[in-house]
Design a binder for these strands. Structure first.
Ligand code: SF4
Ligand code: SF4
Lengths: 158, 158
DNA sequence: GCTATTCAGGACATTTAGTATCCAGGTTAT
DNA sequence: ATAACCTGGATACTAAATGTCCTGAATAGC
């Protein structure tokens, strides 16, 4: 899985501590010492997916485009890593004894179906977890986290 | 995910139609028109994992090392694709405001935990499906499948 | 208007992982 | 002895992930 997924999730949690405030890609990158230009690409992907909203110009940056409760971990995975399944059925059955060009083996093959079923449970689990859920868990364990994040970012700005 | 997983699963189902019979890598490859040497590597991995047993020499080949009911889809995925999670926590928190070299973020980070939980449901689903289950489903839908597989292989031998 | 800041995104370059081939060595049935 | 077959290392090729750079467009502040 693309490493940017991790960066994106962390960045979204951080942004959830700063509602309505635009944060530049440079600052989000400096936060975890990530390559700015590359993180920027991931943020653009989140923006295209409607998870973040961006504003150009000075005082511009990124912020959550909607309530953190409405942003699931699956949303982020799909935005960064694509919607493809990990298991790719290449329909090798087309060369086997039951070959039939008209058959869609992705749907009929039982192996393909079993793998797809597993992926669906994976996605269902991720869809049930939102950025707000994560933020709430962090808040419970580390009540100072939001303030720490804000001051850390403020120090970067200096 | 490694393409060999699909080859391996298909090959295992085929082998389940021929219990106690050794089938060469060449024939298993010809069955679906796969690159022999490369499929051979996957079969070796299955062999090292104890899923297949191999015999050298003429009349040699591969066969299931244990009852197909005891071979789960997860066993095959792990043997071919490794046991690593798709989501790799690179512990970027170590560069953040709460940095603490002693902390194992893989275990403490809530994002890491959420992703791990999803992977576990994925694995549980795959662990619950065996090669025998797949073979049984195929048999129900296509009662002639085992015989077709055997004759197809026999024709390749000629 | 001018300038500095920032996002948007295409064009690369680099690195890593997946795919594929080949060969030399060991095993075994005939 | 020979031919068939697995084992595993070495190597090449290809695709994908990772990372950098540069141009262009938007915009806040002066
Ligand atoms: S998973 Fe099923 S449909 Fe896909 S290539 Fe394998 S056998 Fe064919
Ligand atoms: S899993 Fe959590 S702790 Fe680990 S690197 Fe990702 S965000 Fe940081």
């Amino acid at each position: 899985m693309n490493e940017g997924v991790e960066w994106a999730m962390h960045s979204c949690v951080n942004l959830s501590w700063l509602p309505g405030q635009a944060v530049t890609a440079k600052h989000l990158a400096a936060f975890y010492d990530l390559p700015t230009a590359y993180l920027n690409k991931q943020l653009q992907a989140l923006s295209r997916a409607g998870i973040l909203s961006s504003t150009s110009g000075p005082k511009g940056g990124f912020q959550l485009a909607r309530d953190a409760r409405k942003i699931s971990l699956l949303d982020i995975v799909v935005a960064i890593d694509g919607a493809d399944d990990a298991f790719r059925c290449t329909e090798i059955l087309k060369a086997g004894p039951a070959a039939n060009p008209k058959t869609d083996y992705v749907k009929t093959c039982h192996i393909s179906r079993a793998m797809r079923a597993a992926e669906l449970t994976y996605r269902r689990e991720l869809a049930g977890q939102s950025i707000a859920d994560i933020a709430e868990q962090v808040l419970t364990e580390f009540p100072a986290a939001p303030q720490n994040t804000r001051t850390h970012l403020a120090n970067l700005k200096s």
